[in-house]
C-alpha cells in the first residue's frame, strides 16, 4: 500500500533542480509527483517516479544524496472539503503528518495526494477502515 518517494538533497544553487530533472529525463524516468521543501541554504526535493530503483541508482551515480522514504498516496474527492474529510479522520485518530503534496496530474474527478506520516502503517489502517482509497505503487506507473 505504501509507495516509494525519493528525496534528494539540493543546495540552493542555480541549476540544481534542472540537473536532477534532466538526468531523470535522460534515463527515461517519469516524475509523477514533486515537492520541494526549502530553506535559505538548501532544499529537499521529493519526487515520486515510475521507476524508483533506476532513479536512485542514476542519482547516486551522479553524486546526489538520495533517500527512499515510504509514503502513502491517497485519493481525495475533488470538491470543496474533500481534503478536510481526510484530515478529520487522521486528526481524530492521532495520526501525524510530516508533510504532504499533490500529484502532478490527475484527469478524473478525484485528486491524488501523497502523505508522509510518522507512522505510515497506522495511517494506512486508519484510512482503510474509513474507506479512503489508497493507491499502491503498481498503480503509479499507469496514472
Amino acid at each position: 500500500m505504501k509507495i516509494t518517494q525519493i528525496s534528494i538533497f539540493l543546495e540552493n544553487r542555480k541549476g540544481r533542480l534542472f540537473d536532477v530533472c534532466s538526468l531523470l529525463g535522460q534515463k527515461k524516468i517519469n516524475i509523477r509527483a514533486l515537492n520541494i521543501a526549502e530553506t535559505e541554504e538548501f532544499g529537499i526535493l521529493r519526487i515520486v517516479v515510475d521507476k524508483p530503483a533506476d532513479a536512485v541508482k542514476a542519482l547516486k551515480e551522479n553524486g546526489f544524496v538520495a533517500h527512499l522514504t515510504d509514503i502513502v498516496a491517497v485519493e481525495v474527492a475533488d470538491h470543496p472539503g474533500g481534503l478536510a474529510e481526510i484530515l478529520k479522520i487522521l486528526n481524530e485518530n492521532n495520526v501525524n503528518i510530516e508533510y504532504m503534496y499533490g500529484f502532478v496530474e490527475r484527469s478524473a474527478d478525484k485528486a491524488l495526494l501523497v502523505f508522509r506520516f510518522d507512522d505510515p502503517d497506522k495511517a494506512i489502517s486508519v484510512l482503510t477502515e474509513n474507506k479512503i482509497k489508497i493507491i499502491g505503487s503498481k498503480d503509479i506507473g499507469g496514472l
Binding site: 529537499i44 533517500h67 522514504t69
Partner: peptide
C-alpha cells in the same frame, strides 16, 4: 551531506 546524515525532513 552524506547518506548517513541526510533526511527527507527539513
Amino acid at each position: 551531506v552524506d547518506e548517513k546524515i541526510f533526511s527527507d525532513e527539513v
